[in-house]
């Protein structure tokens, strides 16, 4: 092949690559524009303050907002300490042996288990065996288990970034292992741990499949008062609306999606702000 042809092939290939990138961006744009167009007519204050309804025009998302809030708070309370402590163990304590290798492989496999399988686990253990029923606590534990591997892996990565010489400095001053972890390793890696946790949390907020199985209720006309109440969440409510036979409920579902996306954007912004603040504190 002569050089001109080869160069042309390269140019054509470059064009194809750009098209591939544009495809993704186009899809993203269409998704946003189309969903917003469908949902905006239904998005108003009443939509935020009403419970759901048989009538599309009256349906609101209040119960789902509160349900998501409850679920997420308990998910964090359970998953964050478990995940961070697990990561500390793996990075700082675990020596190289078969058991610890098994734990590591196991975590990466858990991250690949379909989310609906966690739902089945939650159904069998928390809903039925432990008798929690189809409640917030069952949903939150299930979600916590789902995002646990993500938090562990992210925390491990963050802990790995702690410079070796800082740990040495601490040990050389006669600090014990736990003191070194508490005073040096955790403060240094906290921004990374928080970022990873927030990403995991935003995954949990958007996740519907496990809660469908654990049994978020299709329609809730109250805001939960205790963790042992029934619940629905934003994605569950959207799912319910999207499966309604009446055409107008697709618009209501789209309005729900807009709320969900705004919540997710808000959470990610908080993550960035929190991380920046923490980083400043470390430097002082």
């Amino acid at each position: 092949m002569n050089l001109g042809k080869r160069k042309n092939a390269n140019r054509i290939f470059h064009g194809i690559l750009v098209c591939c990138i544009l495809f993704s961006i186009l899809m993203l744009a269409v998704l946003f524009i189309d969903t917003f167009k469908k949902g905006l007519p239904y998005l108003n204050v009443k939509f935020l303050t009403n419970y759901t309804s048989r009538f599309a025009s009256k349906a609101g998302i209040k119960a789902a907002i509160f349900g998501s809030l409850w679920i997420i708070v308990f998910t964090i309370i359970i998953a964050f300490p478990l995940g961070v402590c697990g990561a500390i163990y793996l990075e700082e304590y675990a020596s190289k042996n078969k058991l610890n290798d098994l734990i590591k492989v196991n975590i990466s496999n858990l991250a690949g288990v379909p989310s609906i399988v966690y739902g089945i686990l939650g159904l069998a253990i928390f809903v039925r065996a432990l008798g929690f029923g189809r409640t917030i606590i069952s949903g939150a534990i299930t979600m916590a288990l789902l995002i646990l591997p993500i938090i562990i892996v992210a925390s491990q990565e963050a802990i790995k970034t702690v410079p070796h010489n800082l740990k040495e400095a601490s040990y050389a001053l006669g600090a014990t292992k736990w003191e070194t972890i508490r005073e040096v390793i955790l403060p240094y890696s906290m921004p990374g741990i928080l970022t990873g946790t927030i990403l995991a949390v935003s995954r949990a907020i958007g996740e519907a499949a496990p809660l469908v199985v654990v049994g978020g209720a299709a329609a809730i006309w109250f805001t939960p008062q205790t963790p042992f109440d029934e619940f629905t969440t934003l994605p569950l409510q959207i799912f319910t609306w999207a499966t309604m036979p009446q055409r107008e409920f697709q618009g209501v579902a789209a309005a729900g999606i807009i709320v969900l996306l705004i919540v997710l954007i808000f959470i990610n912004l908080t993550a960035i702000l929190l991380r920046n603040k923490y980083q400043d504190r470390i430097k002082v």
Partner: peptide, 17 residues
Amino acid sequence: LRKKVGMVFQKPNPFPK
């Protein structure tokens, strides 16, 4: 022991505090 025998390292390694 490490309280009695202090150490200074090759690269300065102050804590980020």
